[in-house]
Design a protein around this nucleic acid. Structure first.
Lengths: 263, 263
DNA sequence: TAGTGGTCTAGACCACCTT
DNA sequence: AGGTGGTCTAGACCACTAG
């Protein structure tokens, strides 16, 4: 998965199916419950891109037969993975691998909402894109080896036509070869990562602070220097926990606020 | 539940058990699944304080017999409520109503962490406490009728002995009679609400912005006026969705940051 | 009509905790 | 030893979606 991928497999997988990690014939005992083993098998196939976002999985009965467990055990495993947002189930249709729909991207990974409670889709303008050695801080956040290369993006995002966020993204160069060459990147980056590089972002940790706008940010966002900005520091990781993106956003929260649910 | 309660029933309920909303003998059909009806019964008993935080529930079999459903249906209902943080299950022990332990309070409702990743317990000092008519904004947040009275608290909270947050809390006076008279309130307010007033906070919604410190805040926190502060606006609600506390915290995030998980 | 997931049941056995 | 929740199975029926 490291080479010079970039295939563009948004729709049909053709016939070159990636490896299916063989049918394991699960047996109980090893300390782990059966349903956990079922989850591991399915998770592995998601990681290996054997099943891709949008794909439909075999039915509960088929999976149960393949893995030599009961349908109820498969059901528990699938429902657990639904709770993790990895799968979606639709009655009468089947079980699907979660996709990065606009709605989902907005709801899961874009948490600025307006005074009216509406989420607005941002519009981005790239200011700079370079490829260079990772700084120590970047290596730390992305778990990279010394000397590793990164792609660094700098962009401004507007909400309702008003520049509202300044973002700096750092990506491991090894995982995203050629990404910087594309002058226009789509707004839904995580879907692009999945479609172009087979990299699926499964979750992200965010830490938020208040900071003062530096002169450049102030100019870009049309605020006074030292105006308060909300800084969102996010590391996005794949299903297997590898960090694949570090993003620091500085937002003018005069008209928008960052939301979270607790409990 | 409105009177002049304040009983102090932290441990034993004595013999004056609150009403148990009778055994309903559930039957399938009304559009709602059986397990959802089981959840409603249990939820109602939590709301009515028939079962209080720390109490142990009857076993799955006993509940199943009482409600005339199968043990598996009760199990699904209980597990759903565990996912909502309302219940906790311990193998070999039983099913318990969630308590506001220090750990739980910190983990669920205190989301400032230090650079080292540690959560510190804050120490509060009350600056003012008054009882007055709710403003329009307060009535809106707490869903109060015009003319309703509120208790307004103003306090400073320190982390590692350094004043780090200025908080304004607004509580419906009707729900917390006599609260202002207690000169020293405990650090874990939500446990106090439960123990003294029988009011259980089940979840909270937060919205976060960056703001500039006003002169008073700057003085209290030892920062320059207009320094950037993180404003956390939280409304806490009970199990049945009634808002019971509005809290606005303004935090110096020079040494702490607000964390959230996404996905 | 056939196939899917959703609900519900009944029963077996295991792992853990208490006594 | 007895009781609790945790796992696993097998089978029935329902609700929804599709062709």
């Amino acid at each position: 998965m490291a080479g010079k991928a970039k295939s563009g497999n948004t729709a049909k997988p053709g016939k070159a199916k990636p490896k299916k990690t063989k049918a394991p014939r699960l047996k109980r005992a090893p300390g782990k419950p059966l349903y956990a083993q079922v989850e591991e098998v399915i998770r592995r196939r998601l990681i290996d891109n054997y099943w891709k976002p949008g794909d439909v999985l075999p039915s509960e009965f088929d999976l149960a037969r393949e893995l030599s467990v009961s349908q109820g055990t498969v059901r528990k495993a699938l429902n657990d993975m639904v709770a993790e947002n990895l799968l979606e189930r639709r009655q009468g249709r089947g079980t699907f691998v979660s996709e990065y729909t606009e709605r989902r991207a907005l709801f899961l990974y874009f948490n600025l909402i307006g005074r009216d409670g509406e989420r607005a889709m941002p519009v981005s303008r790239i200011l700079a894109c370079e490829q260079r050695s990772a700084t120590e801080h970047e290596r730390d956040r992305l778990q990279l080896a010394p000397g590793a290369a990164v792609i660094a993006l700098h962009r401004v995002r507007s909400l309702d036509d008003k520049p509202s966020m300044v973002e700096r993204l750092t990506l491991p160069q090894e995982l995203f070869p050629g990404l910087g060459e594309d002058p226009k990147l789509p707004e839904n980056l995580y879907r692009y990562f999945q479609g172009e590089y087979g990299i699926t972002v499964a979750k992200a940790g965010e830490s938020v602070r208040a900071v003062a706008a530096d002169p450049l940010e102030a100019q870009l966002l049309g605020v006074m220097p030292d105006a308060p900005l909300l800084e969102i520091d996010r590391v996005a990781v794949t299903i297997d926990g590898r960090p694949v993106e570090w993003r620091v956003s500085r937002c003018n929260t005069a008209n928008y606020s960052y939301v979270a649910e607790r409990g």
